[in-house]
Simulated scan of single mutants.
Amino acid sequence: MRKTTVPAQAPTMQAQFVDVTPALAEKWLRQNTHNRNIREKAVLAYARDMEAGNWAENGEAIKFAADGTLLDGQHRLNAVALAGVTVRMLVITGLENATQETMDAGSKRRTADAFGLRGETNASVLSSITKRVWMWDQGDYGFNGASPTTAEAAALLGQRPDLRRSTDIAVRTHQSFRCLPQSIVGTAHHLFTRIDRNATVWFFQRLADGAELPAGHPILTLRTRAVSEAADHRKTPAGRQMAYLIRTWNAVREGRSLARILQDADGPMPMPK
């Protein structure tokens, strides 16, 4: 008679919703013994959404192995502890340790994807402009810091629906003049509109077509600079391109010519006037 081998019983998976307090999050993090490195920007972004009450209960779970090891959720738990708030989360236990290799393997949904699902026109450009305006309002004038979460970007768009108009202008300008990124053009349009709506209309019409501008006009100088950098395939930082637009705008507002546009790498960002 052949001997039959009885397979070991597989772990029993269970799922439940739990109100995760900061103390409970810290306790569970002590079971985080085998995981990837923490991304601090993600923790800070999650914490901001949790503090603001924008954290969505979307079915994504905190996951534990049958032996108690935390497999997935370290960034969310760190955010709960940092924010100091209680967040209701789905918790799954009883998984096999090997399943950790398959977690977070999909493509992350971006703000542009969320805007597209809402039916926004030019969702990718709108997302980029909204993010840059949010960063500018946080005092990140060089666009080097943390980006807003999808919830923060959506909230800003709700507060400032004219960001859609700035997106339209950025897309139209790009059709005629492709040497400046749409995200920077749209951000500048939004900021300049806050100062003088009528002057902003004329400024971006001339940026797009360069028509009827005398030699030495700031907009012609900007166009020449942007064309030169594009032809040389230079990777110009977004903050420097923003400075170019602001220096041009200020010169136009002050009625002076502009022979060159200079912006030191470490120089302060000019403010639009």
Results as ranks from 00 to 15, higher is better:
M1C: 08
T5I: 14
T5W: 13
V6Q: 14
P7V: 09
A10H: 05
P11R: 11
P11F: 04
T12S: 12
A15N: 05
D19R: 14
V20G: 10
P22N: 01
P22M: 02
R30E: 08
Q31L: 11
N35E: 00
N35W: 03
N37R: 14
I38C: 02
I38F: 01
E40Q: 14
V43W: 09
V43T: 12
L44S: 01
A45R: 15
D49W: 00
D49I: 03
M50N: 08
G59K: 13
A66R: 14
G68E: 08
T69Q: 15
D72L: 12
H75R: 15
R76M: 07
R76F: 06
A81W: 09
A83H: 01
G84S: 02
G84Y: 03
V87R: 12
R88H: 06
T93Y: 08
E96K: 15
T99L: 13
E101S: 15
E101N: 14
M103A: 08
A105G: 15
G106T: 11
R109V: 06
R109M: 05
T111E: 02
A112N: 10
A114G: 06
G119W: 03
E120Q: 14
N122I: 03
A123T: 09
A123W: 11
I129E: 07
T130Y: 06
V133T: 10
W134N: 11
D140P: 14
N144F: 02
A146C: 04
T149V: 06
A153E: 02
A154I: 07
L157N: 03
G158S: 11
G158D: 05
Q159F: 04
R160D: 04
R160W: 01
R164T: 00
R165I: 00
S166D: 06
T167I: 04
T167H: 01
I169D: 01
R172M: 00
T173L: 07
S176Q: 12
F177C: 03
R178D: 03
R178V: 01
R178N: 09
R178T: 03
V185I: 06
T187F: 03
T187K: 12
T187V: 06
A188H: 08
H189D: 05
F192I: 00
R194F: 04
R194W: 03
I195V: 12
D196L: 07
V201M: 10
W202F: 01
L207K: 10
A208R: 13
D209Y: 07
D209M: 06
E212H: 08
E212C: 07
L213Y: 09
L213D: 12
P214D: 08
A215K: 15
P218L: 11
I219T: 03
I219E: 05
L222Q: 00
R223K: 13
A226Y: 02
S228E: 11
A231S: 11
A231H: 09
H233A: 15
T236C: 09
P237F: 01
R240N: 02
Q241Y: 01
M242K: 05
M242Q: 11
L245Y: 02
L245V: 07
N250C: 08
R253E: 00
G255Y: 02
S257D: 11
A259D: 02
R260G: 05
L262C: 04
L262M: 08
D264N: 12
A265L: 08
D266N: 15
M269L: 07
P270L: 12
P272F: 03
P272H: 10
